[in-house]
């Protein structure tokens, strides 16, 4: 079983299927190594996750719970503000994830080219990833102030009357999504840069010999071969987008009204209000949404990759 020697460019991510071990051969890879992680993870993550399935069906005060069936879920999909949170979550995730893929790839191509100030550009694009989300949120809340904010001030100079970014119900969610992209695109770029740089140079040389220009090289070589990076970026940003809470909370608190509420902020609001059962139901809904969106996508994208 340990005879599997060096596989060139082992795609460990892509082929998780392992041949089942036969017999009790001595292994230097002890299963005890799993134990500490398994305990912490099991008690603080797995148990609450399973517990949430039950408690979402109850009216719950942390000390006693009363089984009420699907009442919480019925409420969740009937109250307009909770439904709004549900649709907003999907919109937010799709917008941010799509933008990060496109912008991340473009920036990565730009930042792997022979451009002046490449190191500076990479740093400056990546840095917002490391900054506190709450800090970014509060800063942009001020910058997006409709009357006095810098953004509308700048737009006025070129003759555009900027909208009330965070005060206009039509714009609030989009504005938060915009800031999320601003903050997160650096990570997508970094992942893409790693992907592009790892493309074997022979491919590029071969393409050049065959007379391919920049666009052709990008279209035929960079784009298909950075597919693993695309998969990573899409999955990561979708998960992040669906679960996103702090930026929205810092910028709008779900407002104006509940027009920029997402499931995660609904969960917090219900928790604060003491509706623990309803809050947990929100958690289960979020869990189902994330799983329903991400898992099929994950399988689909990875299958395509194997086909290639």
């Amino acid at each position: 079983m340990s005879a599997t020697s060096v596989r060139p460019r082992a795609q460990a991510e892509a082929s998780p299927a392992a041949p089942p071990a036969k017999g009790k051969v001595y292994s230097p890879y002890s299963n005890w190594f799993y134990l500490p992680s398994a305990v912490i993870y099991g008690v603080l993550f797995v148990v609450p996750t399973f517990a949430s399935l039950y408690f979402s069906l109850t009216r719950w005060s942390l000390f006693e719970s009363k089984f009420i069936g699907l009442e919480n879920f019925r409420l969740f999909f009937q109250e307009p503000q909770l439904v709004k949170g549900f649709t907003n979550t999907l919109i937010f995730a799709v917008i941010t994830s799509g933008s990060k893929v496109v912008l991340g790839l473009l920036l990565a191509v730009l930042l792997t080219s022979q451009i002046i100030g490449r190191g500076y550009l990479r740093s400056v694009v990546f840095f917002p990833v490391l900054v506190s989300t709450i800090g970014v949120g509060l800063t942009f809340t001020v910058l997006m102030n409709p009357e006095r904010g810098l953004i509308n001030g700048a737009l006025e100079v070129i003759g555009i009357n900027g909208p009330g970014w965070l005060t206009d119900p039509k714009w609030a969610l989009l504005s938060v999504a915009l800031v999320d992209v601003w903050k997160g695109v650096g990570l997508a770029t970094l992942i893409y840069i790693a992907g592009i740089v790892s493309i074997p140079r022979e491919y590029m040389e071969a393409a050049r010999v065959d007379g391919a220009g920049s666009w052709e090289t990008f279209r035929r070589i960079v784009l298909p071969l950075s597919r693993p990076a695309t998969v990573t970026v899409i999955i990561l940003s979708l998960i992040g987008g669906l679960r996103s809470f702090d930026l929205i909370w810092a910028m709008t608190r779900g407002g104006p009204g509940f027009t920029s509420d997402v499931i995660a902020s609904v969960i917090y609001k219900q928790y604060q209000a003491g509706f623990y059962g309803l809050s947990t139901a929100g958690n289960v809904v979020l869990f189902v949404v994330v799983t329903a969106v991400v898992l099929p996508l994950f399988w689909y994208l990875n299958r395509k990759e194997v086909d290639m």
Binding site: V43, L44, P48, I239, L242, Y268, Y271, V290, T291
Partner: peptide, 14 residues
């Protein structure tokens, strides 16, 4: 663990 959002109140309960 990467995908599932942690269940808040049950975690507090634990």
């Amino acid at each position: 663990g990467l995908i599932i959002p942690p269940a808040v109140v049950p975690t507090i309960w634990v």
